[in-house]
Each structure stands twice: as structure tokens, then as C-alpha cells.
Computed example of a mutant assay.
Amino acid sequence: MYIFRLSFIVNYACHINLDVDLEIAARDVEYVEVLLSKLMSKKISFLKALHILLVYAKKNGIEYNKKWESVFNVEIWDLYNLLNDDFTVTELDYMEFQSDRKNRLEEYGKNVLPSDIPNLIENINNIYRDIFDEHDKWCVENGFELIIKQFDAKKNKEFLDACVERGCVVPINPYIVIKGLLEAENPYDILCLIKKMKSEQKNNWLYNFFFALSKENVNKEMFEELYEFLKNDINVYTGSSCYRNIGFLNKFMYLEPNIYSIICSKLFEVCNEKDFIVSCYFMELFNKEEFSPERLCELFKLNM
């Protein structure tokens, strides 16, 4: 019911901006404000609806009580505004807005302090949980990644620590964090942290760890960790979407030349029960842009 009422506010605001009787809309103000008072909260869903209403009302000369402006004086709204890409409530055209948004997000990422990152993740989580529009969700994912791409090793470490402790519900690409960390931190320390994650995204982080791992950091112990991850990823995975490029096995071939045959045999054993995750691994294997027929013959020659 709450979401339905917020949708009514948004639809009503959009109609104000169309060809409607503005005198009637002006008389509606006191009744709309009663509804706003009943719905008022610090959640993004309410703040977004209120913002759209006030923008379109002001644009058409309809005045609402000034008190509503103070509702936006919260940190979470500033962050949402940074991530949002709705240029229609600004005076910029689309391309100008996108350029400005990108610059603001990058500047934010450069200036955020490591000590602020746990609070940033908490606010991002709260925003993401409270939005239902798929485009809105994309804006948060895309904007958050732009922020994270500006992080140095110290910020990436704080980010990973906070993800382990609090969880991050926004499905970002972990590679952008892990790649930078591997250049500055001990790989085993990073791996141990990721393994402590309790979120559904844990296996995606582990996959990206092995994908980003340099050949110089591959050894027998790391090979055993890889094998343990693959067994778990194949047998336990319950998600509905993921990306797995099996080519990351290349860096382990000097330890086990037959690694492709070994892993593919394990995949084939469970293909009926775990068809989705198995197909994710096999998809790239039979992508001729990644693996030519000659390359496949070379990889599996020990079993031919």
C-alpha cells in the first residue's frame, strides 16, 4: 500500500507537468500535503517521489510549503542524487548531464576518505534495498562502480573489509577492487578476507580473485585453493546469473598441464543437475574468439 501511494504521488506530479488545469492542481496542494505527511520518511522511495512533485510543481507555478525542502537535508539523499541519472529534473540536456554526472562521481571517489567507506556502503545498501525500478538499480550499480574505480589500494582494502563485515548488496564487478589490491597486498590475505564473506556474492568475488591473480602468484597452495573454489562453485551455486571465463585456468597449467580436462570432466559429471553454472563455464570454452579449434586440441591432447 505504501509503494502504491508513492506511485500515485509520482504519477500525479507527472500529470502536473502535462496539460492540466493548474488552478485545480493549486487547490489540491493542501490535500496532497496531508498525504505527504502520512507517508513521510527518510527512505529514498519517499524522497524521490517528493522531489519529482516539488520540481514539477515549481516549474508550473504551484507552491508547496517550504518545510518540505528541509526533508532533503540528509546524507542518503545527497548520495542518491549523485548516483541518479534523471536529467529531466535538471536544466541540462542529456549529454551535458551525463558528462557532469561522471565528473561528480569520479571526484567523489577521489575525495572520499577510507574511514568514510563503511558508512558509504551502508548508505548504498539502504538506497539499493529501497528502489524497485530496474533503471534506478542500474544507476546505483553503474555510479557505485565509477566511484570505486577511483579508489587507491588503501581505500580498496577498507572497502573489502567493510564488505566482509557488513555485506554489499549492490552487485558490482569485484575485479575492479581485487585487481588493485593484488598489486599492493599479499594475495593470501586478500583470499582469506574474501572467504569470510557471508553474502551471495562470495563466489563471484572468489572467481574474480582467481581471474585477477597473476601467474607470478600461482603456486601449489594456490592451486589447491582454486580446486576447492571450483568444487564449491560447481556444486553449491544457486544463483540465476554469473560470468565465468574458464580461460583463467591457463595460469595454472604449468602446475597441472591437464587442468582443462580435469575441470571439464568435473563439470560434465554435474551438467544435468547444475546446468546453468556448467553452461557459464562451457560457454567461453566454445567461443572461437577465445579458444580456436587448434587451441582446444592442444589443451585436451593428453585425453585424445
Rank of each mutant, 00 (worst) to 15 (best):
F4I: 07
F8A: 06
I9L: 11
I9G: 05
I9K: 06
N11F: 10
N11E: 15
C14P: 03
I16V: 12
N17M: 06
L18S: 11
D21M: 06
E23L: 08
A25L: 09
V32H: 05
E33P: 01
E33C: 10
E33M: 07
L35V: 05
S37E: 15
K38R: 13
F46K: 04
K48W: 13
A49D: 10
L50F: 10
L53I: 15
K59S: 14
G61F: 14
K67E: 11
E75C: 04
E75T: 11
I76Y: 03
L82V: 04
D85H: 08
D85L: 07
D85T: 05
T88H: 13
V89P: 07
E91M: 15
G109Y: 03
N111V: 04
L113P: 00
L113C: 06
P114E: 09
I117F: 02
N119K: 12
L120Q: 00
L120S: 02
N125K: 00
Y128Q: 00
R129S: 02
I131P: 01
F132P: 00
K137T: 01
K137M: 08
C139Y: 13
C139D: 14
L146G: 01
I148Q: 01
A153C: 13
K155V: 02
N156A: 09
N156P: 03
K157L: 10
R166Y: 13
R166Q: 10
G167Y: 00
G167I: 02
C168R: 00
V169P: 00
P171F: 00
P174G: 06
E183C: 10
Y188T: 14
I190E: 05
C192G: 08
I194S: 06
W205I: 07
Y207D: 04
N208F: 14
N208I: 00
L213Y: 12
E216Q: 13
V218F: 13
V218H: 14
E221N: 15
F229I: 02
L230Y: 01
K231H: 04
K231T: 02
I234H: 00
Y237V: 05
T238Y: 10
S240D: 03
C242R: 04
Y243W: 07
F248P: 03
F248T: 05
Y254K: 14
Y254Q: 12
E256R: 07
N258W: 01
I259E: 02
C264F: 15
K266S: 07
F268M: 13
V270W: 02
N272E: 14
S279L: 11
E298I: 01
K301W: 09
K301H: 12
N303V: 14
